[in-house]
Amino acid sequence: MSDVIANQSEPTQGRWWIGLFLVIAVLVAIRAGIGEGMGRVYVQTESTSYVSTEGEGGRVSWSAVPGVTEDSVTIDRDVFRTAGQYRAAEAAAPGQQAIRLSWDRTIGLWLAAFFTLAVFSFLAGDNPAYKLTESIVIGVSAGYWMVVAFWETLVPKLLAQLAPDLVKAWCMPNLEGGAFNPVALVPLGLGIMLLSQLTPLGRHVGRWPLAFVIGTFAGLKMVSHVESDIIEQVRATVLPLVVSSEDGSLAAWASLRNVLIVTGVLCTLAYFVFSVEHKGAVGRAARVGVWFLMITFGSAFGFTVMGRIALLAARFEFLFIDWLWLIDPKGERGMSVVAAVMQSG
């Protein structure tokens, strides 16, 4: 497969990219060999024991108990620990195994760093690493949303209605109710018809579930939009144009603010009325509306850029803090923790 990937780029470009990734790999290797190293994830296993008690109607409930007993069930969970905590534990008891390196999470961290750099590499041009990452995220996203849809909707809302006892024993022991609901066969049938779109014959059969989805969505959104986006917004725009302060004098700024908001909403709405020609008073109002729209778009643009810059900063934080261990703003890997343990020891 590497041949296939390599063949898609020009030979010179391919060599350039390989060279760049090799340089990055060498730099990372140098960084890994300096000082405390980099990119390691530590975990500690937390064990909790549970015992069951039978309540009213034979309902079983579980509660955590401090120790392990004969009839208890123990569950082990790995939780994150910082490098500072690991070093502190090592300083207190060399060779301890309570806090240990997690290989799967460490590999995950390095993979995440590779994916981050691969996406950034697109800024310099399309390349095999970016294409590989893109292909992976397409597959993972599709799988992710299918899994979420299955466990969050299909199991509790459909399977639990059709086979409640099975679902209760399998994965939802706390499921309420427990009788077969024949009405659930309707969405099941519609769902199967929807899936038949994947077959050549499914184009006509798939219309009914599609019509159902579109009709219910239209009804649902119409009610919510009319309520929250028309009635509530109009209500919020009905503002006093002359505002008095507590001592009865004119609150100039508050009045001006309300006048601007009411004028802005009316003028912008005038711009959206296309059934009337934008001439005379309507034309002038629409022009003022355009000014308000431009300011709105300008602020939306500013916020979008700010949001993206914040995300960019978060990615750099991931690379420099979590992966390369070049900076340590929270002091999670700081030697101060170790020193404190040594002093107390």
């Binding site: 239209a218 959104k221 119409m222 939009h225 009319v226 986006d229 028309i230 601007l260 729209l293």
Partner: peptide
């Protein structure tokens, strides 16, 4: 800007979208 101009512009856009959603529905 956010409190006055953006509020007015966004409010009109939201009302316009809602009217569009209702008529399309």
């Amino acid at each position: 800007i956010m409190d006055v101009f953006n509020t007015a512009g966004n409010r009109a856009i939201i009302i316009g979208i809602a009217l569009g959603v209702a008529s399309t529905g």
